[in-house]
């Protein structure tokens, strides 16, 4: 029953956000600031995550293939495909659920418990348009960009790790990466990143917007936004793989 109630409130908030998405004047300024916070401010952690994911994947793939007769360039194929189709989108989203999701839930939760959201409403503002719409839009717009960054740095990290450890020369890695490359897997990665961006930001907005109970409530909302964000990313990943592959 409680789950249904939560689903109803979440759907209502999304409906309100959709309806008020036409009030561009209200959220234009906030959207720019959110694009920076979600996108530019996350570049460092996404690059780092990408590089290490690619590097570890290359070394582990090489280790598993070392006694086989499979051509060495296969390492490049496996690493680049894994990163483009799954890891760049999923791992970066899990990291962003902690960074972006937690920040959004904390910001909105603090505003809620200190009556700042009531203050906005009492001035005649549409608080959903002002606070929720720019955050969700920023997620929808910036997660695909971060997916590209994670992919580039992931494949780059794999290539460099392969060279530095001597497991695969750069030319073989690139040859393998090109061999089985198909453009649709990038499209699939984009779709995933858009869905994950929506899931993480909308759940965080929902948890923050309906926070109650002071500082403890803010902490609870932040934790729930992060945990649920990660869970729903994994669930959405499974559903997308089932539907689109």
């Amino acid at each position: 029953m409680k789950g249904l109630n939560e689903l109803g409130k979440y759907s209502t908030l999304l409906y309100q956000a959709l309806r008020s998405s036409t009030e561009i004047k209200t959220y234009r300024k906030n959207l720019v600031s959110e694009l920076v916070k979600v996108g530019v401010d996350s570049l460092g952690i996404i690059m780092l995550t990408g590089v290490f994911t690619g590097a570890v994947l290359t070394i582990q793939t090489a280790y598993q293939l070392q006694l086989s007769f499979i051509p060495i360039s296969t390492i490049g194929s496996i690493v680049s495909e894994s990163i483009l189709i799954e890891l760049a989108a999923v791992i970066s989203s899990l990291v962003l659920a902690g960074k972006v999701g937690a920040r959004i839930a904390t910001e909105l939760g603090s505003m809620k418990v200190s009556e700042q959201i009531d203050a906005l409403e009492s001035m005649g503002f549409n608080s959903v348009s002002f606070l929720v719409v720019p955050r969700v839009l920023a997620g929808l717009m910036m997660f695909p960009v971060l997916y590209v960054v994670a992919s580039v740095f992931g494949i780059g990290g794999g290539l460099i790790a392969g060279m530095l450890t001597g497991v695969i020369p750069a030319s073989e890695f690139i040859k393998g990466a090109q061999l089985y490359f198909e453009p649709w897997i990038v499209l699939f990665g984009f779709v995933k990143s858009i869905v994950f961006g929506f899931v993480i930001t909308s759940v965080a907005c929902y948890k923050g917007y309906y926070t109650s109970g002071g500082a403890e409530g803010v902490g609870k909302s932040t934790t729930q936004a992060t945990v649920l964000g990660c869970m729903y990313v994994l669930l959405a990943d499974f559903l997308l793989a089932t539907l689109l592959l």
């Binding site: 009556e115 203050a119 409403e121």
Partner: peptide, 23 residues
């Protein structure tokens, strides 16, 4: 409706207990 309510609210000023300033 919500649009009319918001218009009406603009005729009100509210001083909240905790001030509710945007930090």
């Amino acid at each position: 409706d919500y649009v009319q309510t918001r218009k009406m609210r603009q005729r009100f000023g509210v001083l909240f207990q905790g001030s509710a300033l945007f930090d």
